[in-house]
């Protein structure tokens, strides 16, 4: 585990700011409603249900209907936030996500909770590491992986204002605050958190702070890593990727997801077509993860500050080799 930042800094479960922001928005806007699949506790929407019972729909354990009915609510003029564990919300209702949301452009905000390896001990049935690959290929669907509480709040507000379907991939893993209060999530714009010229690390979600820690450690070894927060998977900041390729010559992608099809896949597609440089993808490497806590599994797959540092150093070494 990374120690320096997480032990020294207060951490936050982003579901708290998620629930608070949703309630706040619902108080301001009568169109906002919540749809859950018997997941009131894990989505932390008990408060929403108490305050806005007439705008709270619990469809029971039924994800196809959850997404389909959300599309109907949107078509009827509401702004539904459709919330459930990401593994079920996406996989179980994928055709509804494709047809009723992406194709029909219904204004639904999918909130995939406890994504990635959050349900570590429960096993691969409950890991949601495929969700980015699945959602990324659906036209009209924005895909967002916020990195901290400030960005979670901003992404929710953006989702409310953006007329179109959105997949917000949220986690329950506590993360430190990375952004100042006035940070705004802007789709298709990947902010540089730390600049450097030796390689670029693209990270999102709960791994951004680990990537930043890795960059600090790399700095001590004389390797200057650029760290970019790629919370906006769709649309993707192509220019940030191409600048990274041109200016730093090597790219490391870091995500709490399969290395196939998600952030790593998206970056590789652009780099391979437009400006080939060496890319290394970190994530879950095409296997079903073993049992263990989220912290254990992240360590198992090298998704720690040390692991990212080591992979980055290797990458730079390979690039510099003749």
């Amino acid at each position: 585990m990374s120690e320096s930042m997480s032990s020294a800094t207060e951490t936050f479960d982003c579901r708290d700011i998620f629930a608070a922001t949703l309630e706040e928005m619902a108080a301001e806007d009568q169109r906002i409603c919540a749809v859950v699949n018997d997941s009131v506790g894990s989505t932390k929407l008990g408060g929403f249900r108490r305050r806005f019972p007439e705008r709270f729909v619990n469809v029971g354990i039924a994800e196809q209907n959850m997404v389909g009915a959300s599309a109907g609510l949107a078509s009827g003029g509401m702004i539904p936030f459709c919330c459930g564990a990401s593994c079920f919300l996406t996989a179980r209702a994928m055709e509804q996500v494709k047809v009723d949301l992406g194709y029909a452009q219904n204004n639904v905000k999918l909130c995939g909770m406890s994504s990635g390896l959050a349900y570590g001990e429960l096993g691969p049935t409950h890991h949601s590491i495929e969700d980015l690959a699945w959602t990324r290929v659906i036209p009209n669907l924005s895909v967002v992986v916020p990195a901290d509480p400030v960005e979670t709040r901003s992404a929710l507000q953006w989702a409310r204002d953006n007329d179109g379907p959105v997949f917000l991939r949220l986690s329950r893993m506590p993360v430190p605050r990375l952004f100042p209060d006035d940070h705004r999530f802007i789709p298709g714009q990947a902010p540089v958190l730390r600049d450097g010229g030796d390689l670029t690390i693209f990270a999102n979600g709960v791994l951004v702070f680990r990537a930043l820690e890795a960059a600090v450690r790399l700095g001590r070894r004389g390797i200057l890593a650029r760290v970019i927060n790629m919370s906006s998977i769709t649309p993707l900041d192509r220019e940030a990727v191409l600048r990274a390729a041109r200016e730093t010559g090597a790219i490391l992608t870091v995500e709490e997801a399969s290395i196939y099809g998600g952030l790593g896949g998206a970056v590789c597609e652009i780099v391979a077509e437009e400006h080939p440089v060496r890319v290394r993808r970190m994530g879950v490497p095409g296997v079903f993860a073993p049992t263990g806590s989220e912290a254990f599994l992240l360590e198992h797959f090298g998704l720690t500050a040390e692991g990212i540092e080591s992979a980055a150093a290797d990458l730079v070494r390979q690039r510099r080799a003749p």
Binding site: E54, A69, G72, L73, S75, G76, P80
Partner: peptide, 14 residues
């Protein structure tokens, strides 16, 4: 039917 169920819920909410 899921879509229509959502539409009916929307009418009720509105």
């Amino acid at each position: 039917l899921p879509l229509a169920t959502g539409m009916a819920l929307a009418a009720r909410m509105k």
